[in-house]
Write a protein that binds this DNA or RNA. Sequence first.
DNA 1: ATAGACAAGTTTATAATATAAACCAAATTA
DNA 2: TAATTTGGTTTATATTATAAACTTGTCTAT
Lengths: 97, 97
Amino acid sequence: MFKPLDPLLHSELRLAVVSLLISTEEAEFPYIKEQTGATAGNLSVQIDKLSAAGYIEVEKTFKGKKPCTLCHITPVGLKAFEDYVKALKSYLNVKKT
Amino acid sequence: MFKPLDPLLHSELRLAVVSLLISTEEAEFPYIKEQTGATAGNLSVQIDKLSAAGYIEVEKTFKGKKPCTLCHITPVGLKAFEDYVKALKSYLNVKKT
DNA sequence: ATAGACAAGTTTATAATATAAACCAAATTA
DNA sequence: TAATTTGGTTTATATTATAAACTTGTCTAT
């Protein structure tokens, strides 16, 4: 009846991050922060979790002399997102028959 | 960009309960328990929260001599669900333009 | 009649999670 | 060179989800 929802994606901020990365392919920390409205601390933690799960990849580079944390989605993350959306639909198709 | 998600509905079990009640119009506790696979304790707590928010209405009746807890969705709950689905879509429309 | 099992929940304790506050390091500006 | 800003990380706290333990009443079977 109801499919289980991947707890890693069933989180407002992490879902926003993954959604954003799917649409942009790659994004810098400050940009993600701005787009999601998250605090830096919260975002940092959630990015770590997504990264630890292999859903995203984090590359720490430099932009001139400034550090620059670049994130992008992985195939695993994309698949997880697609599965999550599929599972979600089992909760949203509530047509009265 | 990303619309906030009603935390009351952004919970696997509560979303399942509301979804179920929208599709069935009214349901008994044991049936909801069976359909969602939740434990009685967890379900009881979540039903209380939905009820306290006015999203569902709980009627305690009897079926013969057995107590019977009957739940049904309210207009407030239905509206909240619709809003939640709308908000969710801001996370799911990730077409690369 | 009463001990044991069962049904239908509720209460409470615990584990997990989300979140922001506090912190750190390097670079820039005053 | 002191203060401020940028770009984060770590840690402490508050919230939440969840199941275990408990309660109340019914229905057997003895």
